[in-house]
Amino acid sequence: MNEFWQTLTDPDMRFFRSAFYMGLLASVSFGIVGSYVVAKRVSYIAGAISHAVLAGIGASVFFSRTQGWTALDPVTGALISALLAAFLLSWARLASGDREDSLIGAIWSIGMAVGLLFFAATPGYTDPMSYLFGNILLIGPEDLRRVFILDVIIVVIAVTFYQQLQAVCFDEEFARVRGIHTGFFYTLLLVLIAFTVVLLISVVGMVLVVALLTLPAAAAGPFVRSLRQMMALSTVLCLLYLTAGLYLSFRLDWPTGPTVIVLAGAGYLVALVAARLGWGRA
């Protein structure tokens, strides 16, 4: 463990420290938004949003290499495509009604396909693996600042509209009769998901990020008495998985993203068994 702290403070291991701080910041957003996702049962929509992100990443890599658009870095590209997917998916739910599941599948795979085509078209070798499964070596101080800003936005929105979002998650129809603009809050929730999945793409990657969004909240579920408590507990769990995952991957020389996700999966299994044994809320 000592070695771990030394690494954290080692000036040559800046990326490692950045990944740790990033996890620290992002855990709050993941705990909060993940709880909404689990409560509203929109994991598959979160999945579609996070996979569609590859289109934006691919486009940003392509255009910055070929056109010199350096302002369009991968995180910005990811954010744009995540927001686009969020708006499309909320439109599918609110306006078109049926065929929502088809559109989820379409956005999920077309997003990835477009991204891979951009990668293929980009001159020179570019490896999409880092974006798919995370690579903490890619994290820079600029990313950390951006994660901080997004984190603050997510927390402020999620806390301000807690009652409305809770009502929409629990019973959308009742919320509508109470005059809550449920369409707006549903879209807001998907936008929050879009912001959140972008936060940790560099640590766990876009394919695995959904697991980190939903598994901590799902594991917290049987042990909490409110959405608020679910958010708090899943934030702690998320931080635990990220820190332990970072440490283990460093010690064992394993890739960080998959290590974190396997830990989250193990945590979920333990929670399921514990709940079955009656260790959950009384």
Binding site: Q163, C169, F170, D171, E173, G179, M230
Partner: peptide, 24 residues
């Protein structure tokens, strides 16, 4: 219409009845 496993107490549900649109 509900997910019975939603983590929420009786009081918290009744409080939803006090929500009103346009009131933040």
């Amino acid at each position: 219409a509900f997910d019975a496993r939603f983590p929420i107490t009786v009081r918290e549900i009744v409080r939803m009845g006090r929500l009103r649109g346009g009131r933040w």
